[in-house]
Design a protein around this nucleic acid. Structure first.
Lengths: 341, 341
DNA sequence: GGTAAAAATACAAACGATTGCATTTTGCTG
DNA sequence: CAGCAAAATGCAATCGTTTGTATTTTTACC
């Protein structure tokens, strides 16, 4: 099929070869119905044969669009969230896949921003048709302001009150509830909640945690909630603190698998058995969760579906539609079927 | 500083405001020395004041460049390398940072390709000024062919023989050597090598492994090398296989931290103690390595430096220079200072 | 076969920047 | 102050598409 004809770089050349005008070629390649079917077929064939590839730069220029979507990873610098990284990459992959179906490319925001609004003067902003924010960090207000900027955007995160932007996210309240309920059903009573409730998502999970406690008629003990960042080293410290303070607990709901793994490590180091003495539930279901020992019961967010929906909502906005938020189903993955866990 | 003047979108408008011609504005903004310093300053000020931002599309079109670098993650589909993901994301971040300094954006290749050469007809190819490949997968030949395509490119990986493309990579031979040497120094004799030696990097690490053995005068036992992919589940199977076959061993050099962690899990499940019965060394030093329990001795590749050098070499090529390969120093991170480990 | 309507194609003007070259302005020197 | 070189600026063509409108070709009908 492929020949070695000198590569055609301009429509003009292809037009000459085909014996038609440039505009006909343009329309033929774009599938414009006003071009005779036979002519179109002939031109498309010739294009393939001569390995013609449209000059995307010229096209974008003319059409004033980019066919690029920017993705901004809202790494929370303060809390050194390098660790939920795995989640970010999985999400990134899911989004990239969903975008490629729509013939869009993915532009990665170069570095974690301290203020989202800075983006509006960056190339990320000008060189993209829309922006996907992964996470909200603690920039809810800035995102709200950003949404006034006439730039299609969508945010992976929780549906905070007063938001003016479209969010797609897992149901964090249900997630927190499921995790806690699971431990309660195993007979645990004193359950630690490990997660920074100043951050949107942990906050909602905490709400679910409280709901589950209330349902069982258990009173919440303030000292069992610990503002631990996603970053894991702090989690072991926190556990050690608890132990030192002789605060007793027999279960832990963690806001990431890495926190959970770190907690488990700290517990075992202190001579406690997991899950016999303290049962632990994670969040995210990163690959490692299933392979670690003991393997981890965890709450799974459907990342692939999330990526797909993010893209879909963004495309809708680009096409001028208004879109509603979307809350994805969340499920509990129970890893140790043995009773104790 | 910022005013609410109606945003100027074309140079023409800015030119009118400044009372000069479009070409003068263009040159002033580009820092062309033929423009009077005072005029330039005035124009730059006006641009800021009126919030003028150049139309990057038009600029790229005119200059026939993109200011975008594409990054292709060579995820090895066959071996389901989802797990060294963490490495990929860290590298991605490092590259993005290095690129942003040079005012380049990062375009992420949408999905793992089965054949690298397919890229040449994709937008990734046309819409970028250069390409960075992360890893070689098993597409050494295709990459070689690709290098004939007049597109600046650079590859993170090992310096395979007969390569025609520029590589930047850690010293895998030394890495394998260091890991093995470490175990030998601890008195271990029967050391398993876990890694698929059909892949370039594991292959070189295996070479280092053999060197270390030879140095100690230990004969290599063929049955101790296991072609385990980076993906972790296979690692525990492999360990279980060894145990079932009653092949005895007291150490393991693993080609990724995840393989290592998986191996450790399998070992402990079988009632063996780590590191007392079997000492394990990983590779990559992912964040988890330091927090897992027991914490993991591992070989670290300097990813940030790697990203920076990749970008630097690519820029050099874009500027028409020819560049040489680069091999980064590799170091062993010993985590358990206690003698046994 | 002549005519008008419909279908297919061609023409030419954008899109917003850059840049070689022409032109004007400035600065110097005798 | 004339004269000229150097410095500063302006003019206009150009990059490769798309698309509104003009033009040509085809079709259908009497």
């Amino acid at each position: 099929m492929a020949t070695n004809s000198p590569r055609l770089t301009k429509m003009e050349e292809l037009a000459k070869v085909a014996g038609v005008s440039v505009s006909t070629v343009s329309r033929a390649l774009a599938g414009n119905p006003s071009i005779n079917a036979k002519t179109r077929a002939r031109i498309v064939d010739l294009a393939a044969k001569h390995n013609y590839q449209i000059n995307e730069n010229a096209r974008n220029f003319r059409l004033q669009k980019t066919n690029v979507i920017a993705v901004v990873l809202m790494l929370d610098v303060k809390s050194e969230q390098h660790t939920s990284d795995m989640f970010f990459l999985e999400m990134l992959g899911a989004i990239a896949d969903a975008l490629s179906v729509q013939n869009y490319d993915l532009l990665l925001a170069n570095s974690p921003m301290t203020n989202v609004l800075d983006i509006q003067s960056s190339r990320i902003f000008r060189q993209s048709d829309g922006i996907i924010f992964i996470g909200q960090g603690n920039q809810h207000e800035q995102l709200n302001e950003f949404s006034g900027l006439e730039k299609p955007m969508v945010v992976w995160g929780s549906n905070l009150p007063d938001r003016r932007y479209c969010t797609v996210g897992a149901d964090n309240v249900v997630g927190g509830y499921l995790a806690t309920k699971h431990l309660l059903n195993l007979g645990r009573k004193d359950i630690v909640f490990m997660g920074d409730i100043n951050m949107p998502e942990p906050k909602q999970r905490f709400e679910g945690y409280l709901n589950a406690l209330k349902e069982k008629g258990i009173k919440f003990n303030k000292r069992l909630q610990i503002d631990v960042p996603f970053e894991m080293s702090h989690a072991s410290e926190a556990i050690n603190d608890l132990l030192q303070q002789k605060i007793s607990f027999d279960g832990a709901v963690c806001c990431s698998d890495l926190i959970a793994l770190s907690a488990i490590a700290a517990l075992t180091e202190s001579g406690l058995r997991v899950p016999e003495d303290v049962a632990v539930v994670g969040y995210d279901d990163i690959a490692l969760a299933s392979y670690s020992s003991p393997s981890l019961t965890t709450v799974r967010q459907n990342i692939v579906q999330g990526g797909r929906i993010l893209v879909q909502k963004l495309m809708a906005q680009i096409n001028g539609d208004t879109v509603a938020d979307s809350v994805l189903k969340t499920e509990l993955i129970v890893r140790r079927s043995s009773g104790a866990w």
